[in-house]
Design a protein around this nucleic acid. Structure first.
Lengths: 194, 194
DNA sequence: CATTGAAGTAATCGAATGATTACATGGACT
DNA sequence: AGTCCATGTAATCATTCGATTACTTCAATG
């Protein structure tokens, strides 16, 4: 396999591992095993754990904006732009760990290297929503806020409890009637690497 | 100093350290130095790093609900309940790291011990907003969502950039006209332990 | 005074982990 | 055949960090 293909596979695995454990909690060995290669090879292909995380972060924002762009340019659809962007966001749940990796990165603003990269990623998203999607300030704020709440529910693995706890069931049913089904279909259940 | 007082001091320091670095990134030694005691003593007073984090998490939710309760029962105020709860939320910025610690915890849903505790904390907040504050489902969702977005901006330390980058300045001015001032007055600037 | 127990630390241990080094394998091209 | 060079791994190193152990200090109490 070419090193570029291998890099792509490792990147995919790294989304899941960094998403589940965060930057500090994840280990290069875990990423390596998830990608089916040895730990030293991960380090060799990406230099350091830090630059691997930067690559994952950048890739996450790229995929996010690509998803938005694709949904924007697909013509036939009478739904509101807001609805369609929401769909594009939830479609990315197929890339396991992407949303959580972003949330983790957004909490590391104080990190000397990751911090600036995370801020830049956030601003890229913000600019895209304003300039390319055409959201006004209030719409963009509400859209981002709902996205962050969705990330929280994914990160909390609330879905796991939804069938067991009546209170949580009510939370979902009343609060996320539409979102819930999309999330629960894609988000890892139980027996995942924690 | 009594061990209970010491415990309280360590808890306060732990909010800041866990908030800035996350559960895995934080070290018991850093918490100890921030609290002015030795590392073994932190471990002795709290058992393990894990149970220290659980204590911090529980304390954060307690302080949050106490803040909401206090604002609820303070009579004279013609503002909307939503506004007043927002104020209570921002007042808690004085407890450095509290919001970020919550956000970190909410990303650890897959952790065998922290996960259940984090879910329980989230549900406590949800129930309080519904049952005690009286929010309907949509209001509660919007309130939580905005809170998560605020946490994100704090975690990103976007405030640090607001005076330097014109685009970020615009983001804040248009998107968070009121929130911004409150956040920037309290959130750590620059030279913090990252 | 002697004792006891709580507050607190220095020294250190063992496991985990990111990184490095040295080596193996196999195809491409003279 | 012989030489490279890219892909990949085993072994291992150095550091970090949570935890443990064995102390010290000192106020209260009988």
């Amino acid at each position: 396999m070419s090193s570029d293909e291998r890099r792509a596979e490792i990147l995919l695995a790294a989304h899941a591992v960094f998403g589940a454990r965060g930057y500090e909690g994840a280990t290069t060995d875990e990423v390596a095993r998830a990608a089916g290669v040895s730990q030293p090879y991960v380090v060799r292909l990406f230099g350091t754990k830090e630059s691997l995380f930067l690559a994952v972060l950048h890739d996450a924002v790229d995929q996010l904006l690509d998803g938005f762009r694709a949904e924007l340019t697909s013509a036939d659809d009478e739904r509101s732009v807001q609805d369609r962007m929401g769909t594009a966001y939830l479609d990315l749940l197929q890339v396991r760990g992407l949303h959580q990796t972003l949330s983790h990165a957004f909490l590391l603003g104080g990190h000397p290297v990751i911090g600036p990269a995370a801020r830049e990623g956030f601003v890229r998203v913000w600019r895209f929503l304003r300039d390319d999607v055409g959201f006004d300030a209030d719409t963009a704020q509400a859209f981002l806020a709902e996205g962050m709440l969705i990330n929280t529910m994914i990160g909390l693995r609330l879905i796991d409890e939804v069938d067991e706890d009546e209170g949580i069931h009510e939370l979902f049913e009343t609060c996320f009637p539409t979102t819930m089904r999309a999330v629960r279909d894609v988000v890892p259940r139980g027996n995942e690497p924690w």
